[in-house]
Simulated scan of single mutants.
Amino acid sequence: MHPHQQLIEKFYTAFNKKDAPGMISCYHEEVTFYDPVFENLNAAEVAAMWTMLCKNAKDFSLEYKNAEAGNEYGSCVWIATYTFSATGRKVTNYVTAHFKFHEGRIIEHMDSFDLWKWSRQALGFKGLLLGWSGFVINKVRKSARSNLQKFMAPK
């Protein structure tokens, strides 16, 4: 097994345990992250995002499969099931992850998933009717970014 594939498996094994420090240890110190909700995050934001998500996860389970990696790039599919805290609704999110490696660690991490499908589950009827709209998408993004900034603020 390629060492980068082992790194992907280490990352998702830690994620399944809600072990944010274990996840973060897989990242290069200059990592960048992108997904449809948080969009572009720098290394400090990435670490805070995973810490916040692991800390707040309710009824969380994770499965990953098809982890593949070579010298420079890798990918896998992961499925997270959890209760969305803002609404108390159950969500099952199917995600495709793509990675770029540098110096034996993940330097770029990009997750892709259907944001409308997610919003239908997380937001219910409102997500079903308007989850595809820029208004709802931007509201979800703004809320996620605000939560992350609050989490990162000195206490």
Rank of each mutant, 00 (worst) to 15 (best):
F135C: 10
Y82N: 01
T92G: 02
A86D: 04
S133I: 05
V77Q: 09
K100C: 11
A86I: 02
I106K: 03
Y82H: 03
R145Y: 06
V95W: 10
V77T: 08
N138M: 05
A122E: 02
I106Q: 03
F99I: 12
T96E: 09
V140L: 06
D111G: 05
R141P: 02
E103W: 06
F125S: 09
H102N: 10
E108H: 15
I107C: 04
S143D: 14
W118I: 00
I137K: 14
R145V: 03
E108K: 15
T96Y: 11
R105D: 02
S119I: 04
K117A: 08
W132G: 04
V140E: 05
K142S: 07
F99C: 08
G131D: 02
W116C: 00
K90Y: 10
Q121I: 09
R145A: 15
S85L: 04
K142H: 05
F99G: 07
K117M: 01
F125E: 10
K126Y: 05
T92Y: 07
E103Y: 04
L115W: 03
R141V: 01
N138D: 11
K100A: 12
L130K: 14
K117W: 01
R145L: 10
T92F: 07
W116H: 00
I137G: 00
K100D: 10
T83V: 05
G104C: 14
N93W: 10
N93K: 12
